[in-house]
Design a protein around this nucleic acid. Structure first.
Lengths: 221, 221
DNA sequence: ATAATAGTGTCTTTCAGACAGTATGAT
DNA sequence: ATCATACTGTCTGAAAGACACTATTAT
């Protein structure tokens, strides 16, 4: 079989975090060509000598840039073409990763990543804007029928926090009592002893997710 | 930046067709190592000298093996690792393609592809079984909230045919009157003059899809 | 007691399932 | 006429939205 010049294979990760109010996208400023000086998604070459898969490569990059392991991280899609990277024909397997809220403040203080609003992006290197937009579409779609938003929260959280996170991703307010009913029916949360006082009000019950994987709902929202 | 040995980049395509009763998966018997003699998904190297993207590569392969262009073809996921191809570290961008029912008989007669039942697969080359299973999961999920099954039908079709196709993918019978109501509400079909007589009974109205892209429904099923 | 947020109960509306009943063409 | 399938109308039950009401804490 004829051989063709082998393409560049990289991974890029759309790192998202929730601070209780808004989403934040983790970026790095490129310190070398191409696109030197522009913000870019964290990513890098797949190390064919050590990486067992592109997902392993993504997790390696993620651990390298955030110090976090065991993060929610799923494959988004592969972006490819002769011109997206000026160095040659390239394919980038894009992943999206969700930072748990209880790890975000420390991560932000470290400042190894810059954090920008994903809805008002500055120009990004490569085709990274397109990748971010695809990730947001996917994440918003998944928020409709899965426990995905819970992965942006800490280990334990209140129903109000969970609802706010859903509302942010879905872009619409949710009916509180219907939301509680559904979360009860869907049976993916366990109440945990302890409560969270916000201020001068009744403290809220804390919950954690029953499984360490994404729960898919059979009905929507 | 250090360079790593560049991986093999291929595309593989899960080609599915519907004959009115069951799904059929298009495979090719490998005529060379590795996995010589085993059935495999149609696929091949990305031609970095001519392909504009992995999707273009997939469509090139598809056109080559089926003679069909403008087929429904979407990216599934990328499968990668050091051992899935004995020739070295490889990544395969998998696609799934749906053959329109009106093109299937001729394609089957050509016999350039073999057709097997995707639910009772023989051993396949590489990790192709895993790819087929991922494709079926994706397709069945998409059948719940999109017009995907319609892409397995010909240009025009009756509501009964469409429902049968949904039922096959979803694996459960659908209520006929609720189905009609929903298809009416969802507004992605236009009735077309002409009707189809099945046998000795009232002929059915023919429809075609309003758009040439996948319609996503806001509610399920 | 009051303020503030957490959580529940219930009324209403909307939508899906069931199924009877009507329509229409082939024989 | 009858058979077979296409299509429609309507009843019923389940689930969602709205919202009033109760619960529990800090001050």
């Amino acid at each position: 079989m004829t051989d063709f010049p082998r393409p560049i294979l990289t991974v890029d990760i759309v790192v998202l975090a929730f601070d209780g109010t808004a989403l934040h996208l983790g970026t790095l400023t490129r310190d070398q060509a191409p696109f030197k000086g522009l913000p870019a998604l964290p990513g890098g070459y797949v190390h064919t000598d050590t990486d067992q898969s592109t997902e392993a490569a993504a997790r390696r990059v993620l651990a390298d840039k955030t110090g976090l392991a065991d993060i929610f991280c799923q494959q988004l899609a592969t972006f490819s073409g002769p011109t997206r990277d000026p160095r040659g024909w390239s394919a980038s397997v894009a992943y999206y990763a969700l930072i748990p809220a209880d790890a975000f403040p420390a991560l932000r203080a470290q400042a190894r990543l810059d954090w920008t609003a994903p809805d008002a992006l500055p120009p990004l290197a490569f085709d990274h804007r397109q990748i971010v937009e695809a990730a947001l579409l996917r994440i918003r779609a998944q928020a409709r029928y899965s426990s995905l938003p819970a992965w942006l929260l800490g280990e334990t959280f209140t129903l109000a926090e969970l609802r706010q996170c859903y509302e942010l991703l879905l872009g619409e307010p949710l009916n509180d009592s219907a939301f509680r009913r559904k979360m009860g029916d869907l049976d993916f949360l366990t109440p945990v002893t302890g409560a969270k006082s916000k201020s001068t009000a009744r403290p809220a019950q804390l919950y954690l997710q029953k499984t360490r994987s994404l729960a898919l709902f059979d009905r929507t929202l």
